[in-house]
Write a protein that binds this DNA or RNA. Sequence first.
DNA 1: CGCGATCGCGCC
DNA 2: AAAGGGCGCGATCGCG
Length: 638
Amino acid sequence: MPRFSNNIIFDLDHLHSVVGHFADRDAFAFDVETFGPNRGVAHLAPVSWLSMATEGAAIVIPMGHPNGDRLISRATRKKNKDTNKFDQIPAVWAAPPPQLRPSQVWPVLEPLFFSDRLKIAHNATFDLVTVAKYFNDTPPCAPYADTIVQSWLLDENRKSQGLKEITKDYWGHDYDDEHVGRQVEIHPFSKVARYAYLDAKYTWLHWRRFDALLQAEGLDQIMGLEMDVLKVLTKMRLRGAKVDADTLEGLYSQFTEELVEVEGKVYGAAGARFNINSVPQKQKLLYGPKADGGQGLRPLKKTDSGNPSTDAESLEAHPENALASALLEYADVDKMLNTYVLGYMGEEGNPKKPCRIYDGRIHADFVQYGTVTGRFSCREPNLQNIPRPDTDKGKQLRGLFMADRGEKLIVADYGQIELVVLAHYSQAAALVDGFNNGIDAHTMTAAKVFGVDFDEVTKAMRSAAKGINFAVVYGAGPEKVAAMASTSVKEAKGFLKVHQQEFPEIYRFKDAVLRTARTRKPPHIRTLLGRKRRLPGLNYSQKDARGYAERQAVNSLIQGSAADLIKLAMVRLDKALPEGMDLLLTVHDELVTSAPADRADEAEAIVRDAMLGEGISKLLSVPMTIDLKVVDKWAEAK
DNA sequence: CGCGATCGCGCC
DNA sequence: AAAGGGCGCGATCGCG
């Protein structure tokens, strides 16, 4: 095989011989180029290029690229007389060279992609799910390595973990100034060939480099967990979560109607029509002098740029004002309709708002490298911020996510996972005792802070204690605690002082975390399973900047350890689930699994063991708990 | 017209 | 710069 020369495969004999060479190696990197309107939707995107690389060699396989290299007419913009907008006229290229067809290529690759060789990709879930459609919706099998996850474990604070960015940073090579990968089908053949080849080549080079760095930093264990997680995420993405499309249509009508009605209320109260979503206009109308048509209200707080805030908290401070109340109503309906209902349905003819439901299911992208703490993020759409079923609309929206016919959802979430982790690390006696005796953590905190028995804790006391516990985990000050407990700042200071007396171990723990973290180079914490969060700010000389880093450090240890635990639970669950049962969603401390209705009991036991069994519980000195419900709709849990 | 910043808000 | 940690997304607005 040639050394990293641009080796393009045009015929089956060549393909066979190349695949044979790759099969002789333990590991290879691969990358797909997709095209067409669904090029970014992994489970739909058709592949026009596959590139592969291993030690000293890389190849590209074109299979349907539409362009040759000779330019016939360049891209232009033309004014459309009807729409009065510019139409993009793409460049026209000479005919492409004859290429292998996908139906010829993939069967030859099958033995390699389903072998025990290590398959390496950058953002591997995308490539694996993309390739799956050529193999009966089955993704290539493990073992996997993902250079985007490696890059993230090595530097979680990096702005972008994209292949182009890290290649520039680590190798000093900027090879995609023309953004060829964004839309390969508008570029000439040779340019795309070179691009695809470099993607695979650098994926390989990054893997080698990162693998050594991860070992050197003691991050190989957590990388192992993440690669097990990757397999689970690939299955989740392929499966998707079923949504009730008919009910969704109904919600569209209902919310649209309601929005029009509330809009009328807003304009009535304002005395005129205006751009109802414009923050500057709302500021004028709410806080401007009455002489100018404003309401003359007193602002509660300011935005970052110094203007009076129009957020819900500010509007709620004026319950007697009709405009403020109407705007609150409007914002709620607007959010539900535009972010959720239309976010899933999409808008006809709006490429920025595509329909997210494909086969009756939403195939969200749980982003493994999406946070600095180790949690997942989720996008297109985000299924981790669906309204809770506490309100009518929340119930309706969460109720869209339902079990398939003849199936049930098993919804399980960890109880107070962050406080359990805090108890484990701090060994705060009161907290540990509370968890050992199955007492609600906020009630326990309230009893200690207010000096009463557990059964004497009132709602208000528990609510204040909840605020205090949040303050501990997030590092909030007395002002925030006061706001949460709706008391004075002075009283909140008192609460925090008593808390410190009753839970001294927590404060000693925090100090110890920071002391240790500061001595490391660079300053960082390590979570329960060894994940790093680097916090250079811990050594800043400026007090408030350092304080911010200190809050992040403590929170990252707790939040990141909780993330480690649920990731481990996901891997255990996926391994234990038999055919026909699937993990669908993961929401920080919650897992949603589907199973045949007549096997719900079996599924429940599997979920319980995955989340609480020996392999998990041994990691903490405090007992974990879960709240588990078997339901038809997600909204019915809780 | 595309892009980033800002504001605001849904979740854990 | 930041005294509540972590996200993604929609609408607006100003910039190039």
